[in-house]
Design a protein around this nucleic acid. Structure first.
Length: 561
RNA sequence: GCGCUCGUAGCUCAGUUGGAUAGAGCAUCCGCCUUCUAAGCGGACGGUCCCGGGUUCGAAUCCUGGCGGGCGCGCCA
């Protein structure tokens, strides 16, 4: 529709030029925007404002000339000049009504498009190391990453969800030693309790399971407890599997699934880390200093050079990171989105610099990053510092158990990733009924219940007849709903393109509000059969759009509440 | 100190890449259930869009300088 209007305006300007009434250069782009206030029509253009200077006439005068010269169109009921010189377009009612038919016809596919068709994209998210249960911060990553993946799927992309973690290394050693200490009956208060050991109660559970020979299975591994407190390596294997399993359960409760679990250790085992190192050395971007091997990342925009191999001989985390991303590239992902907490923003430049140094033809801005700001957790008016070592935890699972999957997902996905968010546990519990997600779900349930009432009253409705009577929908609240529904595909596309799922959440709240207002003001099950039919068609369309949007957020759409 | 990021109503947050009178929810106050679900609706109250300059027809939005919060700056991951 916007393209259509720019075409009309272009024609009008060309005609004015030809007639010599004005002399302006045709702009490269004519901007058409949606109006905020219904009194300003449906769409508006600022073209007269931007061209007034060049045309040497007042904007309103130019706008008047353009309007007079606009070709006749059945799509537009009227135009109007407003404010400093905006041209407001009022669309024909038939145009507005057609959205109802479109929604019902496309069903679950309404809002989807094919801009990503034939292309694959990898979304990496959560990527928590198996040293403890997932906390609220991971939850935000899980909600955002999964919603971004769903948005990409809705816009035609083929999406692979990936979870990367380290199953060896220092953190994992520490985990193993912590479990071992528990196996030996030690507690944090004991003298021989290892330094830096994890104190959480879950460590004790793992130790007990290990000692009693439990078979633990995670989505990507399965290990039996060996029962030997001296076998640190067996403890490590078992502990990693146990915590992976716990995380699986957390993710499952949250409605998140992964296609690939990628182990950092596999990069070492396959020789990919060394191969990456060799390539970097051969490419001539490395140097030795103080016994360590450095990569000159400053050549690629970093603010300081980075060590790859320590003077002691081991590799820093930086090198496997580069190897991992090179691996992603070699797997053929021309597009990769990494969803991470903002505390990792330092790695963005580093990893990209490392990839550039490989000279593998990887674009400079690859991979993409979506960094969410930190979640601060408040309880009893005080900030809860999350510390694995202290066992001070606000686990994702607790949250799901207490306020529910839907409310938690909505809460964590409904804010822009770039905004810090405060999760007040007490408030979340007290106000769980005031969570906007229920407001949206309630609108869906209400729409469903109207159809149940229809059956109860022994009435019937056909979509065909309902659509035939759409011209009877003349109330302001009905127009508002139809306008809002027509926007849905744009919202989905924008949210997908910008990796901002919160746009869908905000939109759904607005649509639900329009629906509730209409529901309160007018009876859908009117005595008038034709009007009833048309309103039921509108209700069915709203129900569909709400369901589609909630699905993008991974939130259920209940038929009754 | 340097880098990234954010700053909008008492609180939590939107604001469609520069548009018209800056919007929601919660909280507070006043109304609405013998009629399709009151987890709802209508109304009121509430603003120095952190501050100062700049760009232009027009700035919460872009540029610049401050102030304030968060995060990151290790041969830790």
């Amino acid at each position: 529709m916007k393209e259509y209007l720019t075409g009309l305006i272009g024609e009008a300007l060309a005609a004015l030029n030809a007639k010599g009434k004005v002399n302006v250069e045709l702009p490269a782009t004519i901007h058409i925007g949606r109006t905020r206030d219904p009194a300003h029509g449906d769409l508006a253009s600022n073209v007269a404002l931007t061209l007034a200077g060049g045309a040497a006439m007042p904007p309103r005068e130019l706008a008047r000339l353009i309007c007079a010269e606009l070709p006749e169109s059945a799509e537009i009921s009227r135009t109007e000049i407003a404010g400093p010189g905006f041209i407001n377009f009022f669309l024909a009612d038939s145009r507005l009504h057609s959205i109802v038919a479109t929604v019902l016809e496309q069903g679950a596919g309404f809002g989807c498009c094919a801009v990503g068709a034939g292309q694959s994209v990898q979304v990496e998210f959560v990527s928590a190391n198996p040293t403890g249960p997932l906390h609220v911060g991971h939850g935000r990553g899980a909600a955002l990453g999964d919603c971004i993946a769903r948005l990409l799927e809705a816009t035609g992309w083929q999406v692979s969800r990936e979870f990367y973690y380290n199953d060896e290394g220092r953190q994992i050693d520490n985990l193993a030693r912590s479990v071992q200490a528990r196996c030996r009956g030690l507690g944090p208060a004991d003298e021989n309790w290892p330094d830096e050991a994890y104190r959480g109660e879950y460590i004790n559970d793992v130790a007990k399971a290990y000692m009693s020979g439990v078979l633990t299975s995670a989505s990507d591994r399965q290990v039996q407890g060996a029962g030997d407190p001296d076998d640190l390596s067996a403890i490590r294997e078992f502990a990693v599997a146990s915590l992976r399993r716990e995380q699986d359960l957390d993710l499952q409760a949250f409605g998140v699934q992964f296609d690939v679990f990628f182990l950092e250790s596999s990069l070492h085992d396959s020789g990919a880390v060394e191969a990456t190192l060799n390539k970097l050395v051969c490419a001539g971007h490395t140097f030795e200093q103080d016994g360590a091997l450095w990569l000159r990342t400053t050549d690629f925009g970093d603010d300081k050079d980075r060590v790859m191999r320590k003077s002691g001989g081991g590799y820093t985390y930086f090198l496997p990171d580069v190897a991992y991303h090179h691996n992603k590239w070699e797997r053929g992902f021309k597009r990769v989105i990494n969803e991470q907490g903002a505390d990792h923003h330092g790695t963005v430049t580093r990893v990209r610099a490392g990839l550039q140094a490989l000279a593998a033809g990887i674009p400079e801005a690859w991979p993409e990053y979506v960094l969410h700001q930190m979640v601060t957790v408040m309880r009893a008016g005080e900030e809860v510092r999350i510390s694995k070592r202290a066992g001070n935890y606000v686990s994702l699972r607790d949250l799901i158990d207490e306020v529910g999957k839907d409310a938690t997902r909505y809460f964590l996905a409904a804010r822009a990733p770039s905004s810090q968010l405060t999760f007040d546990i007490d408030l979340a519990l007290v106000q769980s009924n005031d969570n906007p997600v229920y407001y949206i779900q309630y609108a869906h349930a209400r729409a469903c219940s109207v159809f149940q009432q229809l059956a109860v009253r022994g009435l019937t409705w056909s979509e065909e007849a309902g659509l035939a009577g759409l011209s009877l929908l003349i109330e302001d609240s009905e127009n508002a709903i139809m306008k809002k529904m027509a926007r849905y595909p744009e919202v989905v596309l924008l949210a997908a393109q910008r990796s901002e799922p919160h746009r869908v959440a905000i939109y759904l709240r607005e649509l639900a509000a329009e629906f509730h207002a209409w529901y309160n003001a007018h009876r859908i099950l009117s005595e008038d059969r034709q009007l009833r039919g048309a309103r039921l068609a509108l209700a069915a369309a709203v129900r569909q759009v709400l369901a589609n949007g909630l699905a993008l957020l991974g939130v259920s759409a209940p038929e009754s509440m």
